[in-house]
Write a protein that binds this DNA or RNA. Structure first.
Lengths: 125, 125
DNA sequence: TTGCGAATGTTATATTATAACATCATCCGC
DNA sequence: GCGGATGATGTTATAATATAACATTCGCAA
């Protein structure tokens, strides 16, 4: 799925062109020239893009990135470099085995996941 | 490490007694009778407890839970049941292999992680 | 006892997100 | 073409989460 409207395209393009996660209000400031005036406008578009799997919310930063590969919501890892701020999204490994070890949690069925790993990338060591 | 002051003890006890993650303002409301009046008081104590590894912040809920086992910050998974709200903290698996697969990220050194899995526990299926 | 550092209290404000309602645009059936 | 449904957008206000900045108090050790 691609962005479905000019507004969605605009914000998606903006996020793609940035290499680091952007806050909703950063996006708002950047898009004022294009007619965006209120936070609710940004959040509305972001929520659509999240639903389409085109954008990922980094919960630990309250910020948003364009996905390189479209994926279902809550189905990727993000690695975030504390040095340069770069982010890489990658497929989530299977940790169902992890749950089997704990009483009452062995039948746990994962639905959405937020897996966010901060650290240092090889260029920033 | 245990809570170090009466205020820390109070909030830690409150979180322990609750079985689900609590927002900072929930904690504030619950502790008004004990002299807490302002959000900053709650956040100060929470930050200490986070630092000691006694409390965990669930980023995807903006809420806090008492840890069953003390652990370094960013070194546990939380599984959250969408049905009953119960939370289980468990040791984090090793993702380092995941990073080796991606150009420019193979030397990535994880520091803090937020690994939050929402789903359904066996009682709520 | 006094001086230091940590914890606490207080006020104000910043940051992130949503609610509620109005308007507009597109498309479809008639 | 008309009318009605639907979804996107615009607008205003407010809720929810978090921090800054500074004053006061407490415990303890020199």
């Amino acid at each position: 799925m691609k962005p479905q409207t000019p507004r969605q395209q605009l914000i998606f393009d903006f996020l793609q062109q940035k290499k680091t996660p952007q806050g909703a209000y950063d996006i708002l400031d950047a898009c004022r020239d294009h007619g965006f005036r209120a936070p609710s406008q940004i959040y509305r578009v972001l929520n659509k893009l999240l639903e389409y799997g085109l954008v990922h919310k980094v919960e630990s930063l309250n910020a948003y990135i364009a996905c390189e590969q479209q994926h279902d919501i809550g189905q990727s890892i993000v690695a975030i470099c504390n040095g340069c701020g770069l982010v890489k999204e990658m497929p989530i490994p299977d940790f169902t085995d992890q749950f089997k070890k704990f009483d009452g949690w062995d039948g746990f069925i994962p639905q959405q996941m937020a897996v966010e790993v901060k650290g240092r990338c090889s260029s920033c060591n």
